[in-house]
Design a protein around this nucleic acid. Structure first.
Lengths: 140, 140
DNA sequence: GCCGATATCAAGAATTATTCCAGTTATCGC
DNA sequence: GCGATAACTGGAATAATTCTTGATATCGGC
């Protein structure tokens, strides 16, 4: 179960290393921003939010830090259509419900015990490494 | 049930209008290419394949024709990660299995009677308009 | 604590997919 | 056939992201 309480995360609580990736000051700040405000920000959103605390961090560095964390499995990169990539620290298998009226993106999980592969007609012999799904709609 | 036989489609078999969209010569050619070779080509792939028959069709026109057909529900636009959009004439509700070793994309459908919304923990009151899913893996 | 090796970061240029724009051409209804 | 409208073309523009090059920071061994 993923907690809904996204309380502030002091820098001190983020370790020096996660999954073999050295968590530099820049990466710690970026990661903290993702943890604190889980609204699936884009790289540019992160860049804007971090400006006050790290004024001379470049957008390119935000991109490379995010990419490094994605490659090390610390965060996930989420793409909607052709829009800019968004980033999220929820590592549980989940998809996204995109509310088209508010623009808010909600994490969505499978009901307990259910896996997408179980309900699909897959090609014979298919080995699934990774699943992504997106729903679009609205909350009544 | 969607046929697996993708036989050649003569230009004459594509009507002058589909779903209220005037099927011009360019659109007919583009649509035929999608019907004949269902490998989820990008706009540029379509552009390359059409060059022999319509040598002075511009890439911009390929984009606008594909877009018009997507807007009229004649074809579907599919996005994988941040790669270029791909297009497919299969209108049945389906997702995609991306074989990472061959690069081939297979259409995948739900088992009869199953809908993604039934197996998910959705936010209360969610009205789903559209579903997309992608699996990545390989065929053993 | 100092030093070389390595990893990380910054800033701007380059790339890729896509869209826009302005002018031309084709098609439709009369 | 004629004017109105829609479609098409080719080149320029845009947005997100990646690349490149040089500068900085960090680590392990002494």
């Amino acid at each position: 179960m993923v907690s809904k309480a996204f309380k502030p995360v002091p820098a001190s609580e983020i370790p020096d290393e996660i999954s073999g990736l050295r968590m530099t000051r820049q990466r710690q700040h970026i990661y903290r921003i993702l943890l604190q405000h889980r609204d699936h920000p884009t790289a540019n959103d992160v860049f804007m939010r971090i400006k006050d605390t790290l004024p001379n961090l470049s957008l390119a560095t935000v991109y490379t830090c995010l990419d490094a964390m994605v490659k090390h499995g610390i965060i996930r990169q989420v793409n909607f259509d052709r829009g800019p990539s968004r980033f999220c620290p929820n590592l549980a298998e989940h998809g996204h419900f995109h509310d088209v009226t508010t623009g808010i993106i909600h994490d969505v999980q499978f009901r307990p015990g259910i896996h997408l592969a179980d309900v699909l007609d897959l090609p014979p012999g298919a080995i699934i490494k990774n699943v992504e799904f997106t729903l679009r709609g609205q909350l009544s």
